[in-house]
Structures are given as structure tokens and as C-alpha cells.
Design a protein around this nucleic acid. Sequence first.
DNA 1: AAACCGTAAGTAAACGTTTTCAACTAAGGC
DNA 2: GCCTTAGTTGAAAACGTTTACTTACGGTTT
Lengths: 357, 357
Amino acid sequence: MHIRKRFHKLFGEVKNVEKTVTIKDVARKANVSISTVSRVLNNSGYTSASVKEKVNKAVDELKFQKNMVATAMIKKQTSTFGLIIPDIKNIFYGELTRAIEDKAHQHGFNVILCNTDNNLEKEKEYLNFLLRKGIDGIIFSTPEINDRNIREVMKSRPDLPMVILGSKVQNVRLDEVLVDNFDGGYTATEHLIDLGHERIGYIGGQQDSYATLERLKGFKAALEERGLPLDKKHIKLDEFKIHSGYEKGKEILAKKDRPTAIFAGNDAIAVGVYKAAREVGLKIPEDLSVIGFDDSQFAEIVDPGLTTIRTPIAEMGEKTVELAVQIIKENKNFKESIMFPPTLVERASTASIKKVH
Amino acid sequence: MHIRKRFHKLFGEVKNVEKTVTIKDVARKANVSISTVSRVLNNSGYTSASVKEKVNKAVDELKFQKNMVATAMIKKQTSTFGLIIPDIKNIFYGELTRAIEDKAHQHGFNVILCNTDNNLEKEKEYLNFLLRKGIDGIIFSTPEINDRNIREVMKSRPDLPMVILGSKVQNVRLDEVLVDNFDGGYTATEHLIDLGHERIGYIGGQQDSYATLERLKGFKAALEERGLPLDKKHIKLDEFKIHSGYEKGKEILAKKDRPTAIFAGNDAIAVGVYKAAREVGLKIPEDLSVIGFDDSQFAEIVDPGLTTIRTPIAEMGEKTVELAVQIIKENKNFKESIMFPPTLVERASTASIKKVH
DNA sequence: AAACCGTAAGTAAACGTTTTCAACTAAGGC
DNA sequence: GCCTTAGTTGAAAACGTTTACTTACGGTTT
């Protein structure tokens, strides 16, 4: 001790070798065996009060922190989830990720973020990494309806907790949490019909996306139920992006018998439609009603405020994590499908057709 | 082998015990020692071509994947970064995080996401976790100018690669990558002055944020240089959020001698100002010019398009990771400060003062 | 008094790699 | 023919924990 001080004084900044303190150091200091230390640390097994105290004192004095890598090695648990999404820049995934990370943190898990851009090769790379790192579970939030990687992982690691968020994957039975996309599509369309619109367009995302398809089904069902014709040229699928809404919006709105209302597959697409409408000289909602999906931050920012179908993003993210945690703790897979109801949020982008004199 | 097949046939779905295949299995199959397997896996040391082949064959056949936890245990490297940000929901951090994660992935690193909400206690929790998990480096992107946690980590783990992104921390010498906030503030203000504005407001973020302060300095410097008076009641600091822009915007715009232009501390604040202006009945840019900061997605979405100071978010994120990787690989800390230049992006939210009536 | 039990604590194996060390071979130089 | 050396491999230790097993002790129960 004394010597060390002198040493420091003499050389000033000594190269800080600073051996990380391990359970062995604690054991030595507390004058017990390492198994005893481990026992009080995890309070498992029998430990006397006196020993407990000694050990805790040593822990405090040495500022000992358990090395989780070593723990992971033997327990085969890393308290880490992998989160696989297309792109965190996308505001929808931002909100989702935040909810997931928060809930995971509450349960003592960290999350490793993976952006795949819907690229299956990239997804596979990430998956390999995650698996080799011994993550405790994977949360998929990929729109892709036909993800062979997921099936592969299920085969090679049938034990690994996985839950799918916001989508379904074909031929796969897994825990999943979803919005009722059909219902959302139906509600959105019904809302427009109730306002008197008869020519309604739909601009959706990727055509191999579960959400796109289900929302479209809801759209069609509503039209049919109300006896309105389905005009295929007013239905466009592209991507869940602003740009797509803009491009497809312009296409649709350029036509002579343009729709008087557009159901956008999500809020980003709706934002693109706003831009297209502006360019074509159409006023929202007077000349064109627009309804979105998700109720993301975009919906409030835009002027006029976007009427949209609210997806309970945060709730879904939280539920997903809770499911994953439960699967881990109870060590069994429920293969549940949890469906959240969407709700209509009326702002200022939809109006009665009557306004169009 | 035969027996096993029978077994499977008899019982169909046998409980899949599926011992994960280890280097030992490979060694047994290839008829060599585990050290040899390790050598060909990492191709280190001497290995004959024939043995190499045998081992690789065994690896393929068994579909062996190295367990990274075990590797981490002995190498003390996890190929993982911790990323500490206030909130991934915030679109700015979404863009930043994407760039960081991409670059990290390119270099073979994963990133653990941590949302702190600028809460130092929460940050500390995350830090503890990360440290115990043996992450290879930490990227901080917290606005807080006075982060005691960072200082603490530097003390306890002087060897740990850390870089600060987008901010500076008092009394700390660390690698950092920044935008030139002063220059950005100056440029924004100058732009407004050039358009003929003489009464200009500033709505900034947290007052203990480096960005807020520097941008304000630039603002003041520009005013002074051009001989314009500084009106304190037109300067408001709150948070880098839409809501703050709205609230403070309303306060400022309610006044009789309201400014004819507002420099918003970031794009989110600008969006709030838009809303405030709308409520007060001011048209942008005819009645009020607004300039933002960041050039995030918001800037394009909003109508009219937001003139703003572009922060090269992606480039900064990438550079940060490259710096971190370099520090790890070369095992030395550069303590560099890398400054990126911001640029003015003109859209439609700023106009010459002459346009007013 | 023998057998049993609950409590307490230590010894050593285990987790799956990497790496040091030692052992051995074959080839080349003298 | 001996020494050196480069090439090749295996045994075993190490990384920092957890845990199964063992030992020990004092007190009950029979």
C-alpha cells in the first residue's frame, strides 16, 4: 500500500495496468472460498450472516463487478436480445424500438440493434452473429411475409425464444404480436365512405408485406360491403416510404377521374401524397381527403394534421418483450398470436365530400 | 447411427436435446486436437494443408459455429459497442444510429442501444451493464455538457475506447466528433440578416447542451458583427423538441415587436414554430422566416420546406465508429477532436423582409 | 449411542475457446 | 552422423464465473 503510493508519486502517470478485480480477489480479501463469494453474490445456497457481511464488505471495498461474460459462459444466458428491423431511420421503427428497449431494460436485458433493409442476406449475417453471441432471444419486426431465415433459425435452434412483431410469416408458427390490419384498413375506408367519398384510392407498401396485404383486404371488404366499385388503377403498391406516396400519388391524381380520397398504407406514404397533392394543386381536405396508418409523429407535424389509423406501437413493443421474457423465464413457447385493435384518429385531412361543391 | 434413426422413426418428434457442437466435436471428427482446430479456424501458427482440409470438412459437416462468448472470455473482446443516446424516437438520433450501426456492422461489431432520456442515473445503470458485459467501446451522443458518468468511466477504465459524438464534455479530454455549431449558428443568422431581417429570435434546446450554447454564440456573434441589437426577450431556451418550439414560439410571436425571423435550435423546434405561427395567423415565409438546424427528415416534410443548417449526420456517425475501431485496433487513444462543417440548405421557409406587405 | 438432518463452507469440475509450452519430425548444413 | 532449425501437432493452462460434490459440525430423533 505504502509502496504503491510512493510508486505513484515517483512516476506520476504510471501505465495503468489495473488488473480487473475478480471473484478471487474478493475471496482472498474476505478470507473465504470463491464458491462462498458466488453464493452470497447470488444468494443461493446457505450462507451465514457473518460471512455474508465479510463478503459484501470486500465487494464494496474492491468495487467488484461480476463479469457477465463469464456468467454467460456457464449459464448460457447473456441477458441480451437481438432486435431485427428494416431501418431505424424509419420513424415507425424508432418508436417501436424505443418501447422495446425500455421494456427490455426494465427486465434487465440489453438489445442489439440490427438494420436489415429487408435484405435477407444481411439478415442472415446478423442472425449468425447473434446466435454465436448467445443472445437469449430474437425479436423480428420485418414486414417480409416469406422469411426463410426465420424458418432456418427455428430448425437449428428450436429452443430459442423468438417473437414476430407486426407481421406474420408464412408456414411458421411462432409467437407474434400484431395490429388488426384488416380492421384498420376497413375502418379507414369506412371513414372515407361515411364522408361521402365514392372514388377512393389505396397506396400501399411492399406487396409481400403482411401489413400491406391485410390493409388492402380491409379496404376491399369495406368497398364491397358498401356496394362501391373497386377501381384497380387507383390501387398502387410500392414501399412504405414518403417517396412512394409522392410518386404513386402523382400517378393517381393525374388521372381525369381521380379519386376524391386516398387511403395511404402508412403515414409516410400519406406525407408523400400531401406533397403530390400540393404539386397538382389540390387542397387537403377540400379537394382531397387523405387518411394514413400508424399515427406516427408525422401525422401531427403535417399541415393539415393527418387523420390516421392509430397502431398502438408502444404497447405492441412492450407486449412483445414481455412475451419474450416470459418464454425465457418459463422456458416454454406459447406460440400465441396477440392482436391489438387499431383506432381511428381524426385530424384535419379528411372531410365530407360535400365540401367539394 | 442406425439405432438413432430407428429411434427417430419410432418416436417421431424426439425432444430435441441437440447439444451445441463445439470445437471438441470438430476435433474428434477430424481426428486432431482442439488446439489444431483452433489454429486452422483462426489460421494462426503452423498447420499443414492436409489437416486444414480435414478440419474444414469437419466444420462444414457439423455446421460448427464458434461460440463468441468463450472467445470473449479469453480474448477480452466482444465485438460489441455500446451506444448511448437520449432517445431513439428522436429522428435525429434515428439517423445517427443508423449510420453508426451500419459502419459498426461493416467492421464486424454489433451495437447495444441505450436510451437515457438525458437521465444521468439511467445512464449510469446502462454504463454498469455495458462494462460488465465487456463491450469494446462506448459511443456517447448525449447533449449534456457536464456528464459525471463519463468522467467516472474514464477513471475506472482509462483503457476503454470512448468517443463523444456531437457534443463536448467539460474537463474531459476524449475523442470527439462534432459539427461546427458556432459556424452553423453564425451562418443561419447571417442568412436571415442578409434577407433583411433585423429582429431575429432564437429558440434553443437545453441550456446545458453544448450545441445550444455554441449555436447561440454564433447567433450573437453574427448579430454583433452586423451591428444589430440583441433583444434578450427574443431568446428562449427549452428543449430540442417540437413542443418547445411551439410553446416558446407562441410566447415570442405574441409580442407586439415580434421578430420577423426565428432561428430554431433544431428542426424539431422549427416544426413547433410552424405550428405556433399557424395559430397566430402568420404565414411562413411571408410574415415570418424560420430557419432550422440539422436538416433532418422533418425539414422536407413540412410545408413550406424548411430552410436549415445541414449537419452531416451520417458522415459524423461513420467517422465516430471508424475512430472507435481505430482506437481498438491500434490500441491507443488519439484524443482527437474532429469538426465537420455545417452547410446552409435553402428551402422555402426564409424570405426577404421586403416580402412583408 | 447410532443414525439422521439442516446448515455452512470449501474443492474441483465445468462452460468453450485461445495460447503457451513442450514434443516430435524431417530436412539441411557441417 | 550430429546439430540446428523450421514445420507440425498435442497437452494443459487460462479466462471468471457457477455448481455438484464433499466434508464438517451441532443438534434431533430413535
